[in-house]
C-alpha cells in the first residue's frame, strides 16, 4: 500500500507528464521521505519532504549552497494543501519563501547589521530583536519598526489567484 508521499508522486506525475518525480526513501519507513521534482533536463525544480505524523515541507533550491542543514522553506500539515502549493509552484515557475523569522535575520545580515545595531535604531534591547527574529508570527507594527530600523520601508501586498495585486496599508 502506498504512503502519502507515494500517492502525491502518482498524482503529480499524472498531472505533469513533462516533469520527473523521484522518491528518495529512507532506511526507516517512519523517518523522513523526499520527493524530488525535476525538470525535463534533470535539474531540480523543488523538493518535497514528508515525515509520517509531521506533514510536508516544500522548498525550491538555493543557488549558493546556503540551504545545507536547513529545514524546508514552507510547511504544510495537510497533503491536499501541500499538493496544491506544489501544483501552483510548477504552474507558475515560482519559488518558495523561507519562514519570516529567517527572512528577517537574513535581511539584517544581508545589510551587514548586527542585532545590537538594529535594536539601537529601533529603540529596543538587542534581546528583543533576537526574540522577534525567532518568532513564527510577528505583529505588522513590530515588523514595520524593525524594517525601519534597517533603513527600509515595509510593503505588504495581497495577491489574488487571477494575478491582481493590491498594496495594503496599516
Amino acid at each position: 500500500m502506498k504512503n502519502l508521499i507515494q500517492r502525491m508522486q502518482g498524482e503529480l506525475a499524472g498531472r505533469f507528464p513533462g516533469m520527473r518525480f523521484e522518491i528518495d526513501a529512507p532506511l526507516e519507513e517512519t523517518a523522513e521521505w523526499f520527493l524530488d521534482v525535476r525538470n525535463q533536463d534533470g535539474s531540480l525544480f523543488l523538493v518535497i519532504q514528508w515525515r509520517p505524523e509531521k506533514g510536508f515541507g516544500v522548498s525550491t533550491p538555493a543557488a549558493d549552497n546556503s540551504d545545507y542543514g536547513s529545514g524546508p522553506d514552507e510547511v504544510y500539515p495537510d497533503p491536499i494543501l501541500a499538493t496544491d502549493r506544489v501544483i501552483d509552484l510548477i504552474e507558475s515557475g515560482g519559488a518558495t519563501e523561507p519562514p519570516i523569522a529567517v527572512r528577517l535575520a537574513e535581511l539584517r545580515q544581508g545589510r551587514g547589521l548586527t542585532q545590537g545595531q538594529v535594536a539601537e535604531k529601533a529603540g529596543v534591547k538587542q534581546a528583543n530583536i533576537a526574540r522577534i527574529e525567532g518568532r513564527e508570527d510577528v505583529k505588522v507594527s513590530t515588523l514595520k519598526k524593525v524594517v525601519a530600523a534597517m533603513g527600509a520601508t515595509l510593503s505588504i501586498r495581497a495577491r489574488f489567484p487571477d494575478g491582481t495585486e493590491r498594496e495594503m496599508e496599516f
Partner: peptide
Amino acid sequence: EDGRMYPPQADRAFAVTGRPDLTRFRSRH
C-alpha cells in the same frame, strides 16, 4: 525557523544502491 544550520540527523540515513559500506545523509538539496 531560526536560520541556524543543523547537522544531518541520524534518522535521515539513506541506503546507497550497491554500496553497503556507504551511508547517505540527506538534507534539502
